[in-house]
Structures are given as structure tokens and as C-alpha cells.
């Protein structure tokens, strides 16, 4: 094996790596924001809106990301939506991620006893203040592992973007492989690249979890302690 192909194309590979990180971070951010909004709507809107949203979430969850991306990129123009590969990739990842993030947030919201919201509402706090100040700080420590887990999974979906020619790591390295016939070397490099990214993500997640739980375990302990009484009452 000859790994010099990698050093010869270091510049391209480096930029592919950056594009991967960028699409990943962008997709996660878009997915988290959209997912949070969807979770809030699911928990507060009327039955009609909830039903429509529920269907949307089910459809996205039941279809492959690749198909969604094709639909967005190749089908978009016929609906008047012409996107660059990069834009289509980011939006696609955001849409795909948002439904999973929405489910995670929804679980988090429902884990906070309803009475805490009612107390806040009776004190005049607005719905958004209740979400930010009462619910999210408490649920974060509970849902952080699930958030980190899905963030890693979403990272492993980014190679799909190579199919619509987003110049990310997989696109660059398979290109180099085809050009130089160094298929094995480039594929191994790909594995190492994604491994490093996943590892980085999980380390970051562990660090966040430690910080969050040091700050918030008090609350969670109390909630557990309260549970039996609440159901008895």
C-alpha cells in the first residue's frame, strides 16, 4: 500500500474534512432548532396541527435520507426551488435530523412535572420563559446522552451528500481513489476520518454531560424522590 496519495492530495482532503465538519455542525444546528420548535408545537398546538406534524415526522422517519435528499435536490427545481448542492445538503440534513431531535425534546419536555409549568404560568411567566427557564435547564441533563448519540449518527449520514456533489470528505477521497486507483488507502483514510469525528463528538458530549449533571443533579434527584408521592396523591 502506498499512502503517499494522501499526502499528495493533503490540501483537497483537508478542505473536504472542513466541509464535512461544516455540514455536520450546520445540519445539527438546523435540526436542533427545528426539532425544538416542532416539539414545542406538538405539545401546545391544537389537535389538527399536532396531527399534521405527527404525519410529517412519521414520513421523514420512515424514508431513507438519500431519497429525501434526491427529492430536495433534483425534485426541488420543478417546484421552483433550485438549490446549490451545499444548500440542499444542509437543508436536507436539517430536515432529516429535526424529526429525531423533535422526538428527543418531546420526551424531555414530558419528563418535567406539569405542575412546574402551572406554577410558572400562575406567576405570569410567558410560555417561552417557561420553556427556557424552567423546562430546558432541567431536561437537558436527561436528554443530553440521546442528543449526543443522534448527533454522532447524523455525522455518519453526511457522506450521503457526496452523491449530490457536495465536496465533503467522502466526495474528495473517493475522487482521489478513482483518479489514482488507490481505493484501499483512501477508504481506510475515510474510516479514520469519520472515527476521529465520532470520537471528538462523544468526548465533547461526555464533557458536557459531566458539567450539566454536576450543575443539575440536585433537581433530578428531587424529581425522582417526588414521583411516588405524586402518583399516590
Amino acid at each position: 500500500m502506498d499512502f503517499s496519495v494522501l499526502t499528495d492530495h493533503a490540501g483537497e482532503i483537508g478542505s473536504g474534512f472542513l466541509v464535512t465538519i461544516w455540514t455536520w455542525v450546520g445540519g445539527v444546528l438546523a435540526g436542533v432548532i427545528a426539532g425544538l420548535i416542532m416539539a414545542v408545537i406538538q405539545l401546545s398546538a391544537g389537535p389538527w396541527v399536532r396531527g399534521v406534524l405527527r404525519c410529517y415526522i412519521e414520513v421523514i422517519r420512515a424514508t431513507p435520507f438519500l431519497v429525501q435528499l434526491f427529492l430536495l435536490y433534483y425534485g426541488g427545481p420543478s417546484l421552483g426551488l433550485s438549490l446549490s448542492p451545499m444548500a440542499a445538503g444542509l437543508i436536507g440534513l436539517g430536515i432529516y435530523g429535526s424529526v429525531y431531535f423533535a422526538e428527543i425534546f418531546r420526551t424531555g419536555f414530558t419528563s418535567i412535572p406539569r405542575g412546574q409549568q402551572e406554577a410558572a404560568a400562575m406567576l405570569g411567566m410567558t410560555p417561552w420563559q417557561i420553556i427556557w427557564r424552567v423546562q430546558i435547564p432541567q431536561m437537558l441533563v436527561l436528554i443530553l446522552p440521546a442528543l449526543v448519540n443522534f448527533t454522532t449518527i447524523l455525522g455518519k449520514e453526511t457522506p450521503v451528500l457526496s452523491i449530490i456533489t457536495v465536496p465533503e470528505l467522502t466526495f474528495v477521497l473517493t475522487g482521489v481513489g478513482a483518479e489514482t486507483f488507490a481505493y484501499v488507502e483512501t477508504l481506510l483514510a475515510l474510516c479514520v476520518g469519520y472515527f476521529l469525528l465520532a470520537e471528538l463528538c462523544s468526548r465533547l458530549g461526555q464533557w458536557l454531560e459531566r458539567r450539566a449533571s454536576r450543575y443539575l443533579t440536585q433537581g433530578v434527584q428531587q424529581r425522582r424522590a417526588l414521583k411516588p408521592r405524586e402518583s399516590a396523591a
Binding site: 412535572p113 405542575g115 402551572e118 432541567q138 440536585q218 433537581g219 417526588l226 405524586e230 396523591a233
Partner: peptide, 14 residues
């Protein structure tokens, strides 16, 4: 001008 006190206190534990 209305306050409410609940059976389960509903303090914010965090």
C-alpha cells in the same frame, strides 16, 4: 393579582 399554591409545591428544583 392572583397567586396559587399547589399540593405538590411545584418548586423548580434546579
Amino acid at each position: 393579582n392572583m397567586g396559587m399554591v399547589f399540593q405538590q409545591f411545584n418548586l423548580w428544583p434546579h
